[in-house]
């Protein structure tokens, strides 16, 4: 790879090996080399390795070996009830999360922008972004502690006479989707608001002055200045969120950490399906085929949303 670069080196006269090795171009190439190697080995080789979806592969074959079987795995997946159950749960949970958790950061950013005390604003921002940095293991543990039949949430619900018997949040499947959305709301609202807050803060102060002169109150300022200011940010975030529907950010974490034999009808998601078949049952090719289906769907959705957004208002993320 380095040979042709040498020919066009800045100092073609320096023929000694030492001179060549210390030429700026070689040093720059050496500086990107570890990163490029890491990408080739851990990103591009696995991408090529998706071909095992059309083979029958075991651990010793690796991504290059195995016998070709065509679409056999795909056929089996489409006939697998658990796949459709996972698909149903993934799409359901993702759409519910999109509805519930998408508006919250926007609203929260608008609220934070109206806080007049800078010190208090800082406290709110620091504390509300903190959960984003907590491991999902911790969030799941907190969830189990708080929603336990003897836990604090049931205690409060019972003392308010909202329920007679403790609610079995983890053992009844019907709660799972809502629970997943609530956890996302708790973990990501503050963090999600940062992007929007930055866009609002970028508005020139004179715009507000002018609006005030014209008699606009604070609510009208929010509606006519702040919201339009974050419109393009909202579109970009929406596209990214919809594109992520099938992988669905926290779906896997919730499915793996909070799923149990009682709520599996609603907690079994596509990410878990891949893991279950691949690393646990060791059907590598079968799981890779499932993954290929999911990523094809994701990519199609992402491109489609982007295309629609472009048609509607000219914002385009690529």
């Amino acid at each position: 790879m380095n040979k042709p670069l040498m020919a066009t080196d800045r100092r073609p006269g320096s023929a000694s090996l030492r001179g060549k090795l210390s030429s700026p171009q070689v040093i720059l190439q050496l500086m990107v080399l570890p990163a490029v190697l890491a990408m080739v080995i851990f990103n591009f080789m696995p991408m090529f390795g998706m071909l095992i979806a059309f083979k029958e592969t075991d651990l010793t074959d690796g991504i290059f070996g195995g016998k070709w079987v065509g679409f056999a795995h795909f056929k089996e997946i489409f006939e697998d009830d658990r796949f459709w159950m996972a698909m149903h749960n993934t799409i359901g949970m993702s759409i519910l999360k999109l509805v519930i958790t998408f508006a919250a950061p926007i609203l929260f950013a608008l609220i934070m922008n109206e806080i007049r005390s800078n010190a208090y604003k800082k406290v709110v921002q620091t504390i509300s972004t903190l959960p984003h940095f907590l491991s999902y293991v911790i969030v799941a543990t907190l969830c189990l502690i708080f929603l336990d039949p003897q836990g604090i949430v049931n205690h409060v619900l019972m003392s308010l006479h909202l329920t007679k018997e403790p609610i079995e949040f983890m053992a009844e499947a019907k709660w799972f989707w809502g629970l997943g959305s609530a956890l996302d709301l708790w973990k990501e609202t503050g963090w999600g608001a940062i992007v929007f807050l930055a866009a609002i803060t970028g508005v020139n102060g004179e715009v507000y002055e002018a609006a005030r002169m014209d008699g606009a109150g604070r609510l009208r300022c929010i509606w006519h200045i702040n919201l339009p200011a974050i419109r393009s940010t909202i579109m970009v975030m929406l596209i990214l969120n919809i594109g992520n529907l099938f992988y669905g950010g926290s779906n896997f974490d919730q499915s793996y950490l909070l799923g149990n034999m009682f709520n599996t009808d609603r907690s079994y998601t596509l990410g878990y399906y891949t893991l279950d078949n691949g690393l646990i049952q060791m059907r590598y090719s079968f799981a890779a085929a499932a993954d290929l289906i999911i990523s094809t769907l994701s990519l199609t959705l992402l491109l489609l949303t982007n295309w629609v957004a472009k048609k509607i208002n000219g914002s385009n993320i690529f």
Partner: peptide, 20 residues
């Protein structure tokens, strides 16, 4: 290459086989 690596991935299983 970087941009591609950001948007596409081979998924869990091929990575696992490479690591192996």
């Amino acid at each position: 290459m970087g941009a591609i690596s950001m948007y596409f991935s081979g998924g869990l299983i091929p990575l696992y086989l490479v690591l192996n």
